[in-house]
Every structure is written in C-alpha cells, then in structure tokens.
Amino acid sequence: MTRRAVHRTLLFLVALFLVACAWELYKAVGPEQGGSLLGIPLAKTNDHAMPHTWDMVSRLGEPENRAGGQAIWRSVLGYAWYSFRLAAFGLGLGAVFGIAAAVVMARFRFVERGLLPWIVMSQTVPLIALAPQLVSWSGKLDLFGWDWPQWLSVCVLAAFLAFFPISIGTLRGLSAAPPAATELMQSYAAGWWRTLLKLRFPAAVPSMVPALKLGATLSVVGVVVSEISIGVKGGIGRAVISYSQAATGDPTKVYAAVFGAALMGLVLYGLIVLIDLALMRNRPQEVEG
C-alpha cells in the first residue's frame, strides 16, 4: 500500500473516532429528557434515545432477536450483501444509460437542448412517490409470462438516481478535449466516432470519475429508500425499518443496520476509487483540491 493510501486510511479512522467522541461529549453534557437552548430544541441524551457508541458496537455481537441464533452483524452483513449487489447493478445500469445519453447529446446538439431539461426535471420527482408507481406499472407489463421481480424495480430506481450525475459529468468531460487536439484529429480525417474513442473518452475520464463516485453514493441511497418503499425482503432497507420498530425495547439494534448501510456505501465508493486508480495510473498526479 502506498504511503498516501495508509495516510488516508488513518485519517479516516481518526475522523470516525472524533465523530464518536463528539457523540459521547454531547451525551455527557446534553439534557437527559431533551429541552431547548435559546429556542433551539436539543435532542434527548438518555440511553434510549442516544445509546453509547460502545453499546452500539457491542450489540453487533449479540443475536438478532431474543430467540437466539447468529450474531446480528452476520445477519446485517447478509442484508448488506443483498442490497450491495442491487446497488452495484443499479450503478452499472445508470452508468450505461448515463454515458450513452451523454454521447448522444454530445453528438447531436439538438438532442442535448431537447433532452437536458427533461432529465433535470425528472430528478425532482421524489423516489418515494416513484417506487410504488414503478411497481404497479411493471406488474401490468406483459413480458411474455416473465414476472418483473421486485429487486429489479429497486435496481431501476437506483439507476434512475445515478443516471443524472453520470450523464452530466460525462457530457462535460466529452467537451473538455482541447481544440488543438480536435483539430489534430480533423487533420487525420478521423470521423466523429473515432475521435470519440481515441480522444474524447480518454479526455473525459477526469470528469467521469467524480460523477461515478456521486452516482455510487446515490445508487446506495436509492436502493435503501426503494427497498423500504416497495417492501423488499432480505435487503438492508427492510432491516432498517424493522429494527427501528423495535427501538423501544432495543435501542441499539437499528444502529447495526445503519452501520451495514454505511459499509455498503463505502465499499461501492471504494470500487470506483480502485477503477480511478487503474485508469489514471499513467496520468500526471493532480493536486487534490
């Protein structure tokens, strides 16, 4: 591992530790039953509403419910793995359609002018409203006897969220090639598509990677929200809801699911970072802004 990577990981762990410290600090000084300070409502700090961070961690080792069985972290990992695959597939779908849309918009200016407003508008529709619509609409589809599975709706909704930043980032990157380079390709009598392959796409990578990172995090959000809206079993979204319903008796349980969802997001984001490293291996190291 490079020194920079080790440095980054250490900083991340330190940051996590500081967040835990801030949590405990507030718990120590804040009001047990809540209250207000100069009109600002303050959260309750009793063990029910705000469990200690070490209680959250130790809960991971205990079984899912009183009936016993495997430790909850195993179950959560299972749910997270299920949802992770949906998020990854959703990201893939979003990336394929996002990049395709960007290429078409870059090639045909009138398509960009016509399509872009609709793409922007589409993002303002809340996912919670879209999810049931998609489920009922897909249920009515006659796909030669093949049933549209629930998880596919989740993937489509995740793809829907990831699509926007990826298409915008790719579109911007495709126009980022310097004019001298496009003139050079013109002097070689290279057609638009060959120029796309040899010049525009490689030049677009620095714009596409941040877009993919954003798409990855949005895809995870999309999966969790859609799973809850659609009521998909086996995923982390369902776990979040059912664990939070048990909060009166078991306040730390829901945090196990939250950790699982966070881990999902980190791993998917980390995959993009690995792809970035592979693609940018030969390029000059930019100073990080």
Binding site: A180, R194, A203
Partner: peptide, 26 residues
Amino acid sequence: YGMAFQQAGLFEWRTVEKNIELPLEL
C-alpha cells in the same frame, strides 16, 4: 500532410511511442 502546433498537443494518457503511433493507428 502532418501538422504541428505551438502546443505540442500530445495525449497525456498515452505513452510517447503511442502518441507517435496515433496517425498510424488511424
């Protein structure tokens, strides 16, 4: 013909020899 501009205009993602190979690839 071949063209050269004020900015060398080499593709930064390609090695030096792959930059030279560009017109030959095309």
